[in-house]
């Protein structure tokens, strides 16, 4: 069966002498993996198209096996500025991994696909993307995956969140300390993350980041949606001093 769809490349795995399995996020089929035969060959035109964050129009051929075959590829857009700036590049990798982890396999993921497309575009134009841009992506992606944590109301008593409070993924988000225990959290961070969740990515610039940088990533991990490997790289590079 042959189908044509929009897709964003979220990762690749090399197989055999010159082929590649490409992981795609598609609006109609969610997470899809396809074999791109000869994609690593010196004369292949696919190599540059199958880089993370690249938006494609692809033709997929499905046989009896689990994997589809990538037959036709047209590049819609490819990240340029992100490839020339380390912080953007790391965020690009993280965003691809985070959205792919939350997307269902072979089921509709139109909103997650759209979100990742906007995020990739945002990295091209945002003057200084950082924690707030990433947290906005996380908050929205979790919502689209049906996992919105409580951020401005206590997950237990439902009253508006006031300090002192904590964050407990098991309870569904933020809690008053009188309602339960968890990781350190504050109401201002909750309000900020909620604003990032509700504001379109393109206009979230002035909101600022929450003080708990990886809270939502930890929330996704607690719900078994994996731990993006790019996170450890972002953290290790963030700590690295410059040589003198």
């Amino acid at each position: 069966m042959t189908s044509k769809t929009d897709a964003i490349v979220t990762g690749t795995v090399d197989v055999g002498e010159s082929s590649r399995i490409v992981r795609l996020l598609t609006p109609e089929g969610g997470r899809v993996s396809a074999i791109a035969n000869g994609a690593r060959g010196a004369s292949s035109k696919l190599a540059s198209a199958l880089e993370p964050g690249t938006r494609l129009s692809v033709t997929l051929v499905r046989g009896r096996g689990e994997l589809a075959y990538l037959r036709g590829v047209d590049v819609i857009s490819a990240p340029r500025r992100a490839r020339a700036d380390l912080d953007r590049l790391l965020l690009l990798g993280y965003g691809c991994e985070f959205c792919a982890a939350l997307a269902p396999e072979h089921h509709e993921a139109e909103k997650l696909h759209g979100l990742l497309a906007v995020f990739v575009d945002r990295l091209e134009v945002d003057p200084a993307p950082g924690d707030a841009t990433r947290q906005a992506l996380e908050a929205k992606a979790l919502t689209f995956a049906g996992l919105a944590p409580a951020l401005v109301r206590c997950a237990r008593c439902q009253d508006p969140l006031v300090d002192p409070c904590v964050f407990d993924p098991d309870a569904g988000g933020a809690l008053h300390t009188r309602c339960g225990g968890g990781a350190a959290f504050d109401a201002a961070s909750g309000a900020r993350l909620d604003a990032l969740r509700r504001t379109p990515l393109a206009s979230s610039e002035g909101i600022g980041a929450a003080s708990s940088p990886w809270l939502l990533a930890d929330f996704a991990r607690w719900h078994h949606y994996g731990a993006p490997k790019a996170r450890s790289v972002i953290e290790s590079i963030g700590r690295a001093p410059r040589a003198t």
């Binding site: 880089e51 993370p52 490839r83 020339a84 700036d85 380390l86 590049l89 790391l90 690009l92 990798g93 590079i237 690295a240 410059r242 040589a243 003198t244």
Partner: peptide, 16 residues
């Protein structure tokens, strides 16, 4: 992407 990330990281590290 990997080569770009490595080159950008080294360029940043060696700026001083």
């Amino acid at each position: 992407v990997e080569g770009d990330a490595t080159a950008l990281y080294l360029a940043r590290l060696l700026a001083g």
